[in-house]
């Protein structure tokens, strides 16, 4: 009998209690599908991504889409105002979302957003970092690990070169960025747990 969906990939956290679980799920899917399609379009533009096998392209996207969305939508989490902006553009306070059942994942999303935004990355740096997030050879189900690893290394080298060029006096930025990768994995795991709970008990 869950009444709220606190994911900002919805237009609103409020769920119509008259709707069936299936219908709620359909609405949620309609809501986040355009964002997922944008991730796929982004992936296609990563040089070398489309040279990977179809299987590995799908595996990387399946495993990494949530993490890419977290990076792309980092600005939805307003650390100063303590609000989250949903797809409709409406903002909800942390307290309101907490009262709707949001827990540790929400806190962790704010922490991540705050730290990533503090690095003051350019659009180009964010884009390259996002590519690094997506192309990770240690995702489950990768068939041709060597190909993905080679592309991953190329992207990491390009990111290091760009960050070093843009921030010559801030030697730790590249390291801090790489340390965001395990943070994203952790968020991904927390999110997956919530999804499983939702699907089993919609």
């Amino acid at each position: 009998n869950r009444m709220y969906l606190v994911c900002p990939m919805n237009t609103s956290p409020y769920v119509d209690p008259q709707k069936s679980g299936h219908s709620i799920w359909e609405d949620f899917s309609m809501s986040f599908t355009p964002a997922v399609r944008e991730v796929v379009e982004f992936a296609k533009r990563i040089p070398g991504f489309q040279d990977l096998s179809q299987h590995d392209q799908v595996s990387l996207l399946k495993a990494g889409t949530f993490e890419v969305l977290v990076v792309r939508f980092v600005s939805l989490f307003d650390v100063k105002e303590r609000t989250v902006t949903f797809l409709s553009g409406k903002k909800y306070s942390v307290e309101a979302l907490r009262s709707m059942g949001a827990g540790d994942l929400l806190n962790s999303m704010f922490d991540f957003s705050e730290k990533l935004l503090a690095l003051n990355l350019s659009e180009e740096e964010m884009s390259l970092f996002t590519a690094v997030v997506l192309v990770s050879a240690d995702r489950s189900g990768i068939e041709n690990v060597n190909s993905v690893e080679a592309l991953q290394e190329t992207l990491i080298r390009a990111l290091r070169s760009l960050v070093t060029k843009n921030h010559p006096n801030e030697a730790t930025i590249f390291t801090k960025l790489l340390l965001k990768l395990p943070d994203l994995r952790s968020l991904n795991n927390m999110h997956s747990e919530q999804l499983l709970a939702f699907k089993v008990h919609p």
Partner: peptide
């Protein structure tokens, strides 16, 4: 429901979005 990506129908969305580029590609 052991696979969250399948759970969300994510794989289907991803495959459809990739399809335009994949029609002529071997596995």
């Amino acid at each position: 429901f052991s696979d969250p990506a399948s759970n969300l129908g994510l794989e289907d969305i991803i495959r459809k979005a990739l399809m335009g580029n994949m029609e002529d590609r071997p596995e």
